[in-house]
């Protein structure tokens, strides 16, 4: 599906989503509370069929966090970027690890590096950081490493 068709289809299916220009792929913004239903729609709707979540990450904008999901369809070869704005102080979003299994590890990574709490995640524990690491989320912009080796 071309980007225009995709855009039309998504506008029809997800009226709540807002589009953002720029980039080679369609970018949409979704409220974090709508994310789970939107995700299930994107995955299971036969004309969209986004079955491959190839990147899941989070960006710390200093004022808020943004979850970024890069979706692709192995059948139609179209791509979509979904963004969800999160509250920086109490970031919470529904887990999609039951829809795309790869999200389980990626969400654990985001959980410890950004402190995003994924609701209904089957196994939300620290993956990379050592046990007993609490509160500090290394990839947040305000994180200062006490043993930072290089000061530039």
């Amino acid at each position: 599906m071309t980007n225009e068709e995709l855009k039309a289809k998504i506008t029809e299916l997800l009226p709540a989503a807002t589009f953002e220009e720029g980039g080679e792929w369609i970018n949409i913004n979704i409220e974090s509370k709508d994310w789970l239903s939107a995700a299930e729609l994107l995955r299971h709707e036969s004309s969209l069929f986004f079955n491959y979540l190839f990147c899941l990450t989070c960006i710390d904008w200093k004022t808020h966090l943004t979850m970024v999901y890069h979706l692709s369809s192995t059948q139609y070869r179209h791509n979509l970027v979904v963004r969800c704005k999160l509250d920086r102080n109490k970031p919470e979003i529904e887990s999609v690890s039951h829809i795309w299994r790869t999200a389980e590890f990626h969400e654990r990574e985001v959980y410890e590096l950004f402190g995003v709490n994924f609701l209904n995640h089957p196994d939300l524990r620290l993956l990379i950081l050592p046990d007993g690491w609490e509160g500090k989320n290394p990839l947040r912009k305000d994180f200062e490493d006490p043993v930072n080796m290089i000061k530039l």
């Binding site: 190839f54 990147c55 990450t57 960006i59 710390d60 970024v68 890069h70 299994r101 790869t102 389980e104 590890f105 990626h106 990574e109 990839l139």
Partner: peptide, 30 residues
């Protein structure tokens, strides 16, 4: 496998955020 490089730029000389979607990470999860 597929390596994705995701650069978020704020217009400066340094990247604002970089994400590497590494193939090994997903392959390990299976």
């Amino acid at each position: 496998g597929e390596l994705g490089v995701y650069i978020v730029s704020e217009g400066g000389t340094n990247p604002f955020r970089i994400k590497f979607r590494s193939p090994g990470f997903s392959n390990l999860s299976v």
